[in-house]
Every structure is written in C-alpha cells, then in structure tokens.
C-alpha cells in the first residue's frame, strides 16, 4: 500500500462545498478525498510492488525475530513456523510467539518538493504460555525504514522498493526482538 497523507483534494473540495447550497455534501468529502487518492496511488502501487507477490511479510518478520531471540542465548530453542504447531511439536513448546503484520508499504514521511517516502510496516506480537494460555507479553509496533526517497525513485526502481520493504520487515522483526529482550531484562 502507499499512504500519501495528502491534504488534497480534500481541502479544495471543502472550500468548494462551503460555497454551494448543498452543504450536506461536506459529509461526502472525506470519502471522495480517500477514493481519489487511492485511485491516484493505484499505478504507483502496481509499479512499485510488482516484485512483491512472493513475499510473505509475516515470514520475514517472524524469521528475523526468531534469529534474534536465538542469538540472544536467552531461549533454548526458537523456531519459526508458518502455522500453529500440533501434536508433539505443540507439546514440546513452553510458549508461542504469535506475529501478525497489519499493514506494510510506502508512506510519505516528509513534506517538500518532492515529498519523501519511506517503507513502513505495522506489526503485532504476543507471547502466550502453552500450558495456561496466558498472554505474558504483547506489543504493537509501527516501524519505519530510516531511508527516505522520492516516490518516483521507488516506482522507477521496483527492485529498490522490494529491497526497502524487505528491510523494513526485517527491522520490524528486530524491533520486536529488542523489545521482548528488553522487557525480560527489566523483569517486566
């Protein structure tokens, strides 16, 4: 997805509606604003994201998280799985870490000419004890890639968009790992 955070055309439509007798139209302006921006972004989204069909965001986040937790030495075995374990796999686990990616894409993060965009993702994670089902830790993290470039750069180089998006997913996995390790260290 591409999040533009643009003021237009909403503000212009607001001004127009204000001077018409059809004042009730103002309730439709946010919908029109959103619709137009999504239509405008369609081409960019198709071009920038054309190499992303085979990317599983959850897998990238989860595998990075698993690697970081394993490398910390604070866990016996950390294994990333694509689904809920069953049978012996389930019985052997002390806890499950459930990861989801609620959205990911490109977002405008700086105004200017041209405005700059970054890869971003919003992720959730929770740790659940197997024997009790108690959630002992959970977190929602919004993660943004530190690099900022004009949108045109991403659309003209889809492979760059792919790289940045994969990197921000890896950063999200790392972010979750850091926060979990920090919470454990703090004894909370």
């Amino acid at each position: 997805m591409i999040v533009e955070n643009s003021t237009e055309p909403g503000r212009t439509l607001d001004e127009i509606v204000k001077w018409t007798p059809y004042f009730w139209l103002r309730y439709l302006v946010p919908l029109v604003h959103e619709g137009i921006n999504q239509l405008v972004a369609l081409d960019d989204r198709a071009v920038a994201g054309r190499d992303l069909d085979r990317v599983s965001p959850r897998s990238v986040v989860g595998e990075t998280l698993a690697r970081q937790l394993q490398a910390s030495g604070q866990f016996g075995v950390v294994q990333a799985l694509p689904r809920e374990p069953i049978g012996e796999d389930r019985r052997r686990a002390d806890a499950f870490m459930r990861v989801s990616v609620s959205r990911w894409g490109l977002m405008r993060v700086r105004e200017g000419d041209p405005p700059l965009v970054s890869a971003f993702t919003d992720v959730n994670a929770q740790m659940v004890m197997r024997d009790t089902g108690v959630v002992v830790w959970e977190i929602h993290e919004v993660v943004t890639h530190p690099d900022r470039l004009p949108l045109k750069t991403f659309t003209s180089q889809p492979e760059l968009a792919r790289t940045m998006l994969l990197e921000v997913l890896e950063r999200a996995g790392h972010r979750l790992g850091s926060e979990l390790l920090y919470a454990r260290r703090s004894g909370s």
Binding site: P57, R58, G76, V77, V78, A93, A95, M97
Partner: peptide, 17 residues
C-alpha cells in the same frame, strides 16, 4: 517475567493482516 524457556514463533495465526 518469563523464565528461560523453549520458544516457538508462530507466524500464521492472527492474519496478515
């Protein structure tokens, strides 16, 4: 606090969401 334990990361549960 969570004692040192065996942790499994489950990736496909909550939906991509």
């Amino acid at each position: 606090p969570v004692a040192p334990l065996i942790l499994w990361a489950i990736l496909a549960v909550l939906g991509a969401g």
